[in-house]
Amino acid sequence: MKTSNHLIFALLIFLGGTGASAKNIQLLNVSYDPTREFYAEFNPAFAAHWKAQTGDTVVIKQSHGGSGKQARGVIDGLQADVVTLALAADIDALHEVAQLIPRDWQQRLSHNASPYTSTIVFLVRKGNPKAIKDWNDLVQPGVAVITPNPKTSGGARWNYLAAWAYARRHTGSEAGAQKFVASLFKNVPVLDSGARGSTTTFVQRGIGDVLLAWENEAHLAQKEFRAEGYEIVVPSLSILAEPPVCVVDKNVKKKGTQAVAQAYLEYLFSEEGQHLAVRHFYRPTSPAVARKYAQNFPQLELVTIDAAFGGWPQAQKTHFADGGVFDQIYAR
């Protein structure tokens, strides 16, 4: 019965196409890879909330991919009402390259416009056969490390900077950190373009001993593939990843969706939005919700991009720009 309902409903949509009545609103959320499951649940919740508040029906369409690639799409004309990307530098590009948003976009919402945070952890195979405990185990010979390409993936940049922060702490110098990260990337057999691609490489194709992953992505893979018994290893030090969100001013002005787009992002910071974030293994930014779920998230030392790397523009320029440190160590 349920199946046939689905079929009829789908058929109606198929036949009806995009024919929409006046008070139907459509939003496009251009996001990065590991948020698929979270927004699949958050979008209907917001639609119900908006319907209760205004009576309007809002349908949120999703587009997912590597964070840098997605930003490029919006710059090239993808009509996103909101972007929810992996790092601030990718949203900065919307201002720098295309003037789609003002320079101070990150001040428009609380918590640096990041409704949820995450960090970088390790996913290892059942029983942790290579005995990986911390970052220094990743540069040992014979350990294959899976991480996406920092040029195209936001998650990969957080991975890289977390490794760098650890190495600088333990070697005491930038030069030592560069040497450490260079030897880590010598252990990387494949660079996928996005975080999800790397997860499938590790999980589906069975390549590598350890996957550097978003905490939420690691939990999701563990949950989806319970039978394989993947284990999460939390290193001694990692980075506080703040995936920010932003209304794309130029697009919402043209489409007349400013108010609903704004409300959509604000709802991420609401009690319900924060609870959903926790359900999908994101660390909540609301202190009350964070206290409630403190036992869900292991404590570890987290450095911030501002304190450890002088903010994203600086880190981007030094490490990931053409000819930057990553190019130097990966060119070999």
Binding site: T18, L28, D33, R36, E37, K61, Q62, S63, H64, G65, G73, L78, R196, G197, T200, E224
Partner: peptide
């Protein structure tokens, strides 16, 4: 394409998306 679900995904693109969603 822009990979907008239900809007600008052709069948081959949709296959990739579903695969990536496990």
């Amino acid at each position: 394409s822009g990979h907008i679900r239900g809007e600008t995904n052709t069948m081959p693109l949709h296959v990739e998306i579903l695969y990536n969603e496990y």
